[in-house]
Amino acid sequence: MPLTRKKKETINRVSAAVVLIILAAAFGFPFFWMIITSIKPTEEVFIYPPKIIPKVLHMVNYVEAATMIPYFRYLWNTVYIAIVWTSGIIFCSTLTAYGFSRLKWKGRDIFFYIMLATMMVPFQVILIPLFVMYSKIHWVGTFKPLTWPGFLGFSGAFYIFLMRQFFMTLPKDLEDAAKIDGCNEFQVFLRIMLPLVKPGLAAVVLFCFVAVWNDFLEPLVYINSQDKYTLALGIYNFAAARFSSWPRLMASAIQISLPVIIVFFFVQKTFIQGITLTGIKG
């Protein structure tokens, strides 16, 4: 007997749900295992077969992971870099994106495409001359190469593009009204437009924050003393030295992931909006 359309749909839906549950379990499992491992005593991870639930909760791993490396020092270094760099990107990306979206001027689109094209340039092409330049002005070994270039939009093409998408959605009447009231271009930008693109600013802050947290190559190249390590660099050095104390390493991995994951849970919508805006309308 042929199935009715309704029954067919129900079967489709149920099977989709079953496959999804299996896939979600597979994606979630590494997190589960990371947490389980992080609360085991070191000996217990080398038992066969592996135990799902540890006998005793060995929370001291977290304390050790935070004290065997100067965790809070690294955390502060990372936060400091994130704050300065993000401020720079906000400064540069809002101004530039405004110039690329709300203002009409000759050659604007050519500059815009050049800006987009910089996204295609592999970082390695510019890395070596920049390293040479920074070592000549004694910036290597400091946070400066990781922070100040943000104010001039270094590796900021994505954020400029994102801000432009947000500026483009604003109605034209707004600036006309403000101009009649005697505002100049900059005042329109600062007082009228900027407050209206707060969701865009939130997205930029978020992506910058995650980018700094993730960045490994740049700190690796520019930072050479342990007290200036970022979290990513710190945990790598910790891991490279002792790649067998897995519970502590997992606790460490959780400690560096947690700030980003917490932020993600609070502003999930902004995150997803930012990603789809660039993916779909791009």
Binding site: C92, T96, G99, F111, F151, L152, G153, G156
Partner: peptide, 9 residues
């Protein structure tokens, strides 16, 4: 408006 980026470029 685009001068910070342009300089950086």
């Amino acid at each position: 408006f685009i001068s910070p980026w342009l300089l950086g470029f």
